[in-house]
Design a protein around this nucleic acid. Structure first.
Lengths: 371, 371
DNA sequence: TTGTAAGCGTTATCAC
DNA sequence: GTGATAACGCTTACAA
């Protein structure tokens, strides 16, 4: 299929008059002309309808409909300084966390005020995060939603210079109050661990996640240590997954854990998929959960309550986190200052995967924390 | 090093001369002044470095670094007509499909050519899809990636008028050749069903998804019918989930299916989560899979191969789909026309969940159902 | 190779 | 209420 290019455009003198709209593109001017009004009125009809007589309003509506006019966002951004886009950078969407659901919730919230979602995935790389953020700023994003409080040091000056409001999410600590919205991960895992200790567990296993540049996983690791240290306990069986945190990894780690002697009586998993994988592996090996071993996770994805043995976990409303963040930022952009609760509650959801350690007296029925 | 700013606009009478940067914002002009060159050169240094002497290149780099200059994307978009953003509208991110992973892959591909990702979630609503698309067009998205071939009728004229190239994804049929990239869902499910028929199954159950405005689920339903009709079979046990397609729904539907008499010997699930839920329910009820019943799904998410009994399913490389789409669009935008394979292969991944129907001779093969 | 200056399409500031 | 018109910050002919 050889195709010789011979479609020359009409070579005549194409002054391509600058002032008039070039191609067939329609702009405000065309609409204004057709409606018999000025461009200013067309613009007003769109942006502050109250200031335009309904007579003209109608004519303008018809004209723009007839021409199929879609205002040019970049031009508007240039004059107004607002792009109606909010940039969001997540470390990943499918690695166990609940970010996918968070994006859906975010979209719903942004829609209420007609903002768009500029999404970036950093793949847990701070440099990449920074690159994306810079790109978003260049693009004119009105605000940013980030994950965690650890970023490249240049970030602050960049965003301050360009007056881009931003907010960190999925983390909260008393020191960060006012800049980030999320749960207190450290406290959550302390309480979760204490719950297990209260049941009599002394030999713990951990299926952990790497903590490099990740304050969420770090805080959780610290929370566990807090609780253990307070009771003079030690973590003997700690496995850490650096990159991938899926079901397969959970199974594999659990396999190792089950092979170790003495086995831990309770295994804490740093995220939901690790916990689910661990559970599946244990069940596949015929280990009785929770009689032989207790398993807990973090994040309450649907799988946690649908496995044959349901999994005790920490529930965080990730949709609530991003919704609050978006609401706060949009309010700020519009000059409304609103109240925000910076700390997001967590809840320890007690399910079938937890019981007293083997050998201990076992009670049927009510789960109870002891203290 | 020390460059003293002589900040008087030396030109004639120019109230608020265009040149003077308004607030504290830095712009090309500031960089140009500091580097002692014209704005044109600064722009060129950025966009076509080859046309600028390395001497000036260096001075400009330093100047813009010193000032922390970030070019104003909207202004660039206004003049160039390109925003470097690609709009993507997915129906959902967490409903069973593998869209979350697709977004990650998309991001990776876009990064290669420095495009940004404008994401919209339509929540399976065509009107909302259209709203998002219009917003993206208004914003100046250079191209669009959509899901499915069913859209609001106004879509075509809108995109054609604004010369926004777009591509449908996750569907393919001979008729759509050249406009959409995806698997032939109909053929995939025909083959899957034929595989079951070939094993001797005659009584089928379906855990289906609604097909309203959804050509992917429709094609799959048709594929099943194709195969059944060809063999004179009928679908007796069809359950259809309209909105939610998660694990819980799968369990619930399977519960009903197990209660029906006579039970189907093979259950086809319209997506991965329904299949996983069905599998979990069956196992929980002590139904032996595949001896008592075969189960198949669609989409090869990790869960399919990590359940105690692994699930036979159709594997589609969703990352490949969106990657190809992005690559194609970006090439088109840059004037390079590249070859594209429009149909994306599927693969039937045979796992432990499928066997001959009960009562039939059963061979012990390489399938291992450990326990 | 570099500089000058005219737009890009909209909104906002004035007058009327 | 409405209209003329100057920005907004950048790219890109065209000139030098």
């Amino acid at each position: 299929l050889s195709e010789i290019e011979s479609d020359d455009p009409p070579v005549g003198i194409q002054p391509r008059s600058r002032g008039a709209r070039a191609h067939g593109k329609v702009g405000v001017r065309d609409v204004a002309r057709l409606a018999g009004v000025s461009t200013a009125t067309v613009s007003r009809a769109l942006n502050s309808p109250a200031r335009v007589s309904s007579e003209l309003q109608k004519r303008i509506d018809e004209a723009s409909k007839a021409l199929g006019w879609v205002p040019h966002g970049a031009a508007r951004t240039l004059t107004t300084g607002r792009s109606k886009a909010i940039g969001v950078v997540f470390p990943a969407l499918s690695h166990g966390g609940d970010f996918a659901r968070a994006v859906e919730a975010l979209q719903r919230e942004l829609k209420l005020h007609n903002y768009m979602l500029l999404l970036g995935i950093s793949h847990h790389d701070l440099d990449e995060e920074f690159r994306l953020i810079r790109q978003f700023v260049e693009f004119g994003a009105d605000a940013l939603i980030l994950v965690g409080a650890i970023h490249r040091p240049e970030l602050t000056s960049l965003l301050e210079q360009h007056e881009v409001p931003w907010i960190d999410t999925f983390v909260y600590s008393p020191e960060s109050h006012g800049t980030s919205i999320g749960p207190d991960n450290r406290r959550a895992l302390r309480e979760l661990t204490e719950y297990l200790i209260g049941l009599g567990h002394r030999r713990f296993g951990l299926l952990g996640q790497g903590t490099t540049d990740n304050d969420r996983t770090l805080a959780r690791a610290q929370g566990i240590q807090d609780a253990l240290q307070e009771h003079g306990l030690e973590l003997r069986h700690a496995l850490v997954a650096e990159n991938r945190w899926g079901l397969g990894v959970g199974r594999e780690m659990m396999r190792k854990m089950l092979a170790s002697k003495p086995r831990p009586t309770a295994v804490i998993c740093a995220n939901a998929l690790l916990a689910a994988g661990a559970m599946i592996e244990a069940l596949s090996q015929g280990v009785s959960i929770p009689d032989d071993m207790s398993i807990v996770g973090y994040d309450d994805i649907e799988l946690m309550s649908e496995l044959p043995v349901t999994v005790t976990t920490v529930r965080i409303r990730s949709d609530e986190i991003v919704t609050r963040a978006a609401r706060l930022l949009m309010a700020r952009l519009e000059g409304r200052e609103i109240e925000t609760e910076w700390e997001v509650d967590f809840e320890i959801v007690r399910r079938a995967s937890v019981g007293p350690p083997p050998g201990r007296q076992r009670k049927r029925g009510s789960d109870e924390t002891g203290s």
